Computed example of a mutant assay.
Amino acid sequence: MEQNPQLPDQHTPPRPQHDDPGHEVVDREGNIKLPGFKSVDLGHESTEPLGHSAEATAVKQPVRTLILTGFGINCEEEFAAAYQLAGAEPTIVHLNQVLHGHVSIHDYDILNFPGGFSFGDDLGSGVVLANKLRYRKNAEGRTLLDDIKQFIANGKFVMGICNGFQVLVKLGLLPNLSGNVTPEVTLTHNASGRYEDRWVRLKVNPKSNSPFLKGIDSMEVPVRHGEGRLIIKGEETLAEIEARALNCLAYTDFDGSPTDVYPHNPNGADLNCAGLTDTTGQVFGLMPHPEAFLSLYNHPDWARRKRQNPGLSEEGDGLRLFRNIVEHVQSQRSATTSHQEAHQFSS
């Protein structure tokens, strides 16, 4: 009689494979330490446990960004490449490593939810992962959402792209008008009724207070989604989002004017909205993929554009988002250090 295959338990943390010599890290007590994934390094995997030595912390620390993967997420490498190009230190970890306490989000400056198809979009894009973050408790009785709320309260930043944006919306972290982290809007199937894979133009809301978008007026990036249509229920919610400039990105036509006309607006979103921030500006999510346009050569029309303008920058539009937030965190850190030094001098 044929037996059913033994599938891995998704609720246990990932373990090193026995047939991968040198992959395990064992401490003096014989406990296995799960290795971190230092993205875009040669070989991808680091055999060093996550964390930094005292010598490393004594010198100027880079901006540290944590990028979650697992359960169908598949854009983590592009996300990490963007941060490395922007001068940060990206680390990719499986979500279970965070849920089981092997990695703390509080050791990082920016928490990132990449695109992909978490849990196969089986109950709707981002729904299962959002519920896992909201309801699954650790040994201390805390959920990851509890930790994320504390992470934000500590002045740190969260970014979600595509499926990651869907997760933040389904969690209620965006737009979070009430401050209670309950869902106030949703993302559902595109008005076209099909998956959209195309390049779009975006305009930044000039009133947005998000450091991710500082100094950016417009950009061109690709979309790759089937459920990117933002639905805002209730005129009061819609009006408050507009009044507080939380609709930070809009799909535009070739003239740069926000539009609801397909295919310039690929999904029919309310307010022609391609991205949202929360009221603090610390949480930012968008449906398009800035991490997919880090170099001019990512663009399908790069050759003609380069011939017409030989001096055209070889950086892609999407990289500016990552440079912005990395520079913002660095400036915050410098300001804090200066304040502490001034306080010590005066005392």
Rank of each mutant, 00 (worst) to 15 (best):
S295Q: 13
P21S: 09
T252R: 01
F157T: 15
N131I: 05
S125T: 13
G164R: 01
Q3M: 15
H44V: 03
N138Y: 09
Q344S: 07
W199F: 13
L187P: 05
E291D: 01
F117Y: 10
G36H: 02
G141I: 02
G70T: 10
Q6L: 11
E184P: 01
L133D: 15
R136K: 01
N180H: 12
L294K: 03
E242P: 07
L66T: 14
E89T: 04
N180I: 01
T337S: 03
V200D: 09
A86K: 03
C248A: 04
V128L: 12
P300G: 12
E184C: 08
H11Y: 07
L276Y: 15
Y135N: 13
V63M: 05
S218K: 08
Q10T: 03
H339N: 10
F119D: 10
N190S: 02
R305A: 08
T143E: 11
V63E: 13
Y83M: 12
L294G: 12
R323M: 11
H44A: 05
L50K: 12
R224K: 02
R142A: 14
E48D: 10
Q10R: 06
G124A: 07
C162Y: 00
Q10C: 06
G215V: 11
A88D: 00
L34D: 06
L286I: 04
A274M: 02
D107W: 08
H299T: 04
E242Y: 02
G155I: 03
R323A: 07
A153K: 03
Q282I: 04
Q340R: 04
S331I: 01
V59Y: 08
S208N: 07
S218F: 10
R15Y: 10
L85Q: 13
G101V: 12
N163D: 09
H343Q: 13
S104K: 13
A239G: 08
L133E: 12
F79L: 11
G87K: 00
G228P: 04
E327F: 00
G115N: 11
V103D: 10
G316T: 14
G316P: 11
L321F: 01
G51M: 04
P300C: 05
D270M: 09
G228R: 06
S53G: 15
N209A: 15
L238S: 04
F117G: 01
F113R: 06
F113G: 13
